[in-house]
Amino acid sequence: MALFSRSIATAATRPTRAAVASRSTPINPNSVGPFQVFDRNAKRAQRDRAALRDGGHRSRTVDYLRNEVAENMIERLLDVKRRFSEIVDVGSGPGHFAKLLDQNVTDKVTMLDMSEKLLHRDPDSDFEVDVQRMHADEESLLNSLKPSSVPAITSCLSLHWTNDLPGVLIQIREALLPDGLFLGAMLGGDTLFELRTSLQLAEVEREGGLGIRVSPMTDTRDVTNLLGRAGFTLLTVDIDEVRFAYPSIFELMEDLQSMGESNAVVERRPLIKRDILTAASAIYQSMHGLEEGGIPATFQVIYMIGWKPDPRQPKPLERGTGKTNLQDVL
């Protein structure tokens, strides 16, 4: 998901700052390793800035998306008939998910996020269980968590900014105790397709080319394969769509910015020209506008549940051990 890194108003007055784009690691075309799609330093800065705006007030007004997803995650967690001694919430932000946990589920939650400001946005009194905060990068999870040490790991809308999703999933599986639970939600699929297409059409028509404004998304069909490849068993993956209505593209982009969800693609253009924004707002309204006024924005959420393998888990029987002839049944 994406946004321009700074509002055009600010960019116009401070052009030198707008031109600075940092990179997590230098991009070397000859290097072997995960391809760097996202600028993690920029993402951290965006999340920090979002948490600080108006003393955290701006950030709290846009909690609606993550709160909604966190509630859906809790429903899925309550289906698991088990109490966990500890839960680690990876990419927790201010704790949208952690706040919904109570004594029936766990004693203690550890929130882990790369944005220190967002991590400490809300006081401990907002949480029903003991809360610990760990300032760390979820891309190198095993630097902060010991292997086979956590009974459950969750993640609420943060994995869509990781460069190496398979690697992060493997690290999560490593950090889990045997028979440990991973419950995650990430944005993917058709998320923000209206914004993506409007900006693309505006840029093509006005300038004859286009830049990356909205992140490439994980295909929903690939997630099961990724979880399997990372060594999880008993997989459950499902997809849900959350749609919000906004008055116009401007409010949508402002909210995305306040969520810390501005564009952080490495090859992003640092700002959006006034003409493009003007054109995109008209295109968005014409192509996707609602009859009752305003525009919709779609967020496609992929929910995933996986377990670390353990000999005690139920398994399918060996081939050929069946004793009932199917012909008798059918």
């Binding site: 059409l201 014409s286 192509m287």
Partner: peptide, 23 residues
Amino acid sequence: LKRLAAACTTSCAVQAKEYGQCI
């Protein structure tokens, strides 16, 4: 930016619609 938003969506809604329909 807020003034641009208001100009694009309310003050010039007619012209915006014409452009949008053309696309």
